Simulated assay, not measured.
Amino acid sequence: MADENPLEDALNIEPKKEEKLPLRKQVEVDLSNFPDKKLFDQKSDYGQVRGNLKDVIDNSKVAIEGILRVASETDSPRAYEVVSQLLKTATEANKDLIDLHKQMKDLEKDDTIKKVTNNAFFVGSTKELQELVQQQLPAKKVKKIRNDREA
């Protein structure tokens, strides 16, 4: 036993027994229902996609400059074909960036439209309210209640 705990033997103390606590199950929370998480994800994804598109556009600028140099030095039809394809790809990336802005704007617009609160109230007597309800509902669904005061 002296070999198992040399430090405790040297200090002349009893070894501490480890108490193992039962492990708790991890609680799973569905964050998809929280609008703040959804908005955070949308903005995060927007930033990431925007950054990627900007990198593609910047890299295409460098590639266009290089391939234009090659095309002008070699006068090769294939090099000019590559230049035209690269220009087309760069133009599409720019259009995608603009479309991304439009899509994000539409997503933000959808969130503002959904926050409509309708508070309707009626100003008048209960008799006028009952007459209004009777006009709008079919006669079968309206149950007339006799008031003892009116009788």
Results as ranks from 00 to 15, higher is better:
V83E: 05
H101V: 03
D106E: 03
R50M: 05
V49L: 14
L39W: 02
A63W: 00
E81Y: 07
D55H: 02
A120K: 15
I98D: 04
V27M: 01
L100V: 00
K102N: 10
L87C: 08
G47F: 05
S60W: 09
D58L: 12
F121N: 08
L7F: 10
D58F: 13
S32G: 14
K61M: 10
K88A: 08
D9Q: 12
P6A: 02
E81S: 08
P6V: 07
I13G: 05
N119Q: 04
Y46L: 11
Q42K: 08
E65Q: 10
N5G: 02
K109V: 06
V83M: 01
K114L: 12
Q103H: 07
K16I: 10
I98K: 10
L39G: 08
V49D: 08
E92Q: 13
E81M: 14
N33W: 04
R24Y: 15
E14W: 13
L21R: 03
D110F: 09
T89D: 06
L23M: 03
L86I: 07
Q26A: 03
P22D: 01
Q26T: 06
L107S: 07
I57L: 06
E73A: 04
R69C: 08
K115P: 11
V82S: 09
R24K: 11
L68M: 10
F34T: 00
E81F: 03
L39Y: 05
A93M: 01
P15M: 04
K54Y: 15
V56Q: 14
L7G: 11
L97M: 10
K88E: 14
T117W: 10
E28N: 02
P6I: 05
Q103Y: 10
N118H: 02
V116W: 01
T117L: 05
R69M: 12
A79H: 12
L86Y: 15
L31T: 09
K102L: 14
S72G: 08
L23S: 12
P35D: 12
K37T: 04
V29P: 03
P22T: 09
Q103N: 10
S44K: 15
V62F: 11
V27I: 07
L11V: 03
K54A: 14
I67H: 15
L31N: 03
I13Y: 12
L86S: 06
A63C: 02
Q26G: 05
N5I: 08
S32I: 13
D30L: 05
I98G: 03
I13R: 04
L7A: 04
F40C: 15
D111T: 09
A90I: 01
N52A: 15
V56A: 07
G66P: 11
K61D: 08
N94W: 01
I57P: 03
E8A: 08
K17C: 14
Q48W: 11
K20C: 12
V56L: 15
K88H: 04
M104C: 12
D55P: 00
V82H: 11
L87P: 00
D106K: 00
V82R: 06
K102A: 04
L100W: 00
P6W: 07
D110W: 05
K61L: 09
L87A: 05
D58K: 13
H101P: 00
L31M: 13
I67C: 02
